[in-house]
Design a protein around this nucleic acid. Structure first.
Lengths: 217, 217
DNA sequence: TATATATTGGTAATTATTTAACAAATTGAT
DNA sequence: ATCAATTTGTTAAATAATTACCAATATATA
């Protein structure tokens, strides 16, 4: 009975977490209302863009008033689905995996870390924040019994695809991938990549570009 | 004496590291030439997009032949500036900072980690991969003496802006920021953000969206 | 050498995204 | 209660990004 939404572009979706973050900051400051103009000034966006983005999901504002900060924040939380609990496991418990396990941003996005897995016997048995690192061969059974919704891949490039295969084979339909490779997964599986090296190369490009500019002038 | 380049969009720049990665893989397989058509098939891009992107920087291909894999890879490395050495320091030596310090992708992007800093006396003195964690109050002097080109911020949100201020105050003009906040810096300072929580929220959205689709049908 | 096939670089067309404009509604001041 | 000042949602215009197209040129083959 839902009205058919025209597909919402990823450009819009990727701005929502920023809106959410700034709305929380406004709340902390005790600000209860905000106009798209002022919000845009704070975020560095145009007022038009903010109104256009929000209107993809509904008319949350009021003419002459603006937007209620708390209400808009709650709406965006709901759109993002971060108020729904999702169980996650980390595969690859090396430095990065352990850092992610300690990452405090999970709860703010609705994710709860349930277990960690690794192939390295030296790591198996260690606990990180009360989460025991288990042998990856026990992963299938754990997933079956524990209602896992998402897998976080923190392995080196070489192991990533086979981990993805095992995860999707067990019915996991969402992957947060830190391995520097593009995973091949069934089309109903969602993959969100965090490619650190690509980010670093973009930083290198911009540094290089600025140097070029300076040397040309 | 350089011809004036029309500004190249970030959309193009952010695809270059992926081109670079796949070209390296092709080289490892011993493949010496590639057409935009075949390259596009591998990457999941259109051939047009690849040719258009590459032509922003010059005509690296040859009609009837395609692109020489090694040559194109080297050109892209040069465009990205990843073959130039850049000295970096990490500020914030907690879990994430230590994981980044252990990150093997540095050398592939031309970055060399020179030092780590923290305010926590328990961490100061520890070494990670031969890099000693130093007190943040010694940072200014270190930067003056060691030719540091980039700062990597791995602190919590609260400390990030003041770290950015100190870094830019010491003349650092490039920041790789992992703190979940938008840094305010002078306009000649480059900031590349890695906002993990935003990435995670986008994953949450996509999971949520798929559930909505399934429940509607 | 001649000819069919492949493939680029560049331009044009299309599609997507962002920004501008404005009627309609609301607030707040007098 | 009236009126000026705000501000939204929405439509239109402008800008940006992607894709299609094709002449020019190279390769490969007979």
């Amino acid at each position: 009975m839902d009205r058919m939404k025209p597909n919402i572009s990823m450009a819009v979706i990727r701005r929502l977490p920023k809106y959410y973050r700034y709305l929380n900051e406004l709340m902390e400051k005790g600000i209860t209302r905000i106009s798209s103009k002022e919000f845009g000034r704070i975020l560095g966006f145009t007022a038009s863009q903010i109104r256009q983005d929000l209107n993809c999901f509904g008319g949350f504002g009021q003419q002459g008033y603006g937007y209620n900060v708390r209400e808009l924040r709650d709406e965006i939380a709901n759109i993002l689905g971060i108020n729904k609990t999702k169980n996650a496991i980390i595969v690859g418990a090396g430095n990065l995996g352990q850092a992610i396990a300690n990452y405090s941003g999970f709860r703010g996005s609705g994710f709860v870390l349930k277990a960690m897995f690794d192939i390295n016997p030296r790591l198996v048995g260690i606990s990180i924040r009360d989460i025991k690192i288990m042998d990856i061969d026990d992963m299938g059974e754990f997933i079956k019994n524990s209602g896992v919704n998402a897998g976080i891949i923190c392995t080196p490039k070489e192991g990533a695809q086979s981990v993805a295969d095992r995860l999707t084979g067990e019915g996991i339909k969402a992957i947060w991938n830190f391995a520097p490779t593009d995973l091949e997964v069934p089309e109903d599986v969602i993959v969100e990549n965090v490619h650190l090296s690509e980010s670093l190369m973009v930083l290198a490009y911009m540094m290089n570009e600025r140097d070029r500019m300076e040397n040309t002038q």
